[in-house]
Design a protein around this nucleic acid. Structure first.
Lengths: 224, 224
DNA sequence: GTCTATACTTAGATAGAC
DNA sequence: GTCTATCTAAGTATAGAC
């Protein structure tokens, strides 16, 4: 073996970034796989479909990703990373209207920018969350409980109605994710083939208004 | 060929209900298929899985249903039938609070009673609604436009805020379907393995309250 | 380090047995 | 009328060629 091979082997062993070809191909595969998995779910997605989407030979998918399951898990982890970057540091001192408004707006922005990621997550939940059980029962449950506690304290201070905080979080999640997960239905009914930024802005304002008013949140801030 | 065969052939030719065995097996297959398709989507579902769920040999699925596609379409049609039985005959003269409340309650009841049907539909939309394009752009769009028109007139009469009616319908759909489609997530976060009727009642009351108040609907009726 | 030929399993569907 | 044996294609994965 020459030094060329040794360098490459070293790269892998040290878990470095890898060559330019690998980097480009992995990117192509991950993008393609997100599209295919989000459309057809874990079982319904095939390496052949992913390979065609990525413009690569079928076997190369496995060369770069190891296995179908490893590829899927890697995509899910990418989605989860984005999850908990929101509302991580809110407290009772914050303005409920500001926080809830920002929550709705950032979730809608996620639906607009990463609809495939949202659908990938939805498909995982639809099949009973076999890969995300631990995440749901651990990290995410704690996150929800943390936010819920703040909502309760706001209610005690009379800053909003004493609504069930967990139901409120589910309401905001479902209402916002709907525009990603049910994009095909929204498009079919409204006739707008692709929801424009303007459409999304109108819906976002609608949701902010209805949710804040519906929960009796006192002061309404101007648009984020 | 004896008279026994002739009778059976006649049954099929006349498109009658079929024998007791057929009737029972078809029921088993449809129930099993709804579970499997709702979990794994169209592509992800396999006849083998469906057969195991139904407790029948794999080939019998095709004997009774013709093809995988035919089975899937038949299930979708069953779901669609239940869709438009709600809110079909509302008018401007009706009480907005009554109607919206009944709408939310009946949708929640659907999520509680037929979660698999809801997830089957969700999976079909997730993959871009290949089998339901016509339904979405035709029948369902018309249905939405009809309801939306009534909502607009209510707003004109000052019975509710002038919110976008279509967004309101999407809000109610998403918030209610969430408890069927994202059941695994709801269960994981709340810790309630199976949402009880009591849980569902509490959530329903929450949604009715928030949506009605959020849309400025004037009179709030007592629980349906 | 990258990619292809090949192995082995499961897929949907049919023809033929009971 | 009901059910099983069998066919061909597509599925994931690996071993070996460039």
């Amino acid at each position: 073996m020459g030094s060329q091979l040794d360098d490459a082997a070293l790269d892998r062993a040290l878990d470095t970034e890898g060559g330019a070809i690998r980097q480009r191909n992995e990117r192509e595969i991950l993008d393609a796989a997100e599209r295919v998995f989000s459309r057809h779910g874990y079982r319904g997605a095939s390496l052949k479909l992913i390979a065609e989407e990525a413009g690569l030979p079928k076997s190369n998918i496995l060369y770069y990703m190891g296995s179908k399951k490893a590829l899927y898990v890697r995509l899910l982890e990418g989605v989860m990373e984005r999850w908990n970057t929101m509302l991580d540091d809110i407290s009772v001192e914050d303005d409920p209207a500001e926080v809830l408004s920002a929550f709705i707006r950032s979730k809608m922005e996620m639906s607009r920018r990463y609809p495939e990621a949202s659908r990938l997550f939805a498909g995982e939940i639809l099949q009973g969350a076999p890969f995300l059980q631990d995440f749901l029962r651990g990290e995410l449950r704690d996150w929800v409980e943390g936010r819920a506690e703040v909502f309760r304290q706001w209610a005690e201070r009379g800053l909003m109605d004493p609504v069930d905080p967990v139901s409120l979080i589910f309401l905001i999640w479902s209402a916002t994710q709907h525009y990603a997960d049910f994009e095909a239905q929204v498009a079919g009914i409204t006739g707008h083939e692709h929801f424009t930024d303007d459409d999304m802005q109108r819906v976002t304002d609608f949701l902010v208004q209805v949710v804040l008013k519906g929960c009796g949140v006192v002061s309404a801030p101007t648009g984020h």
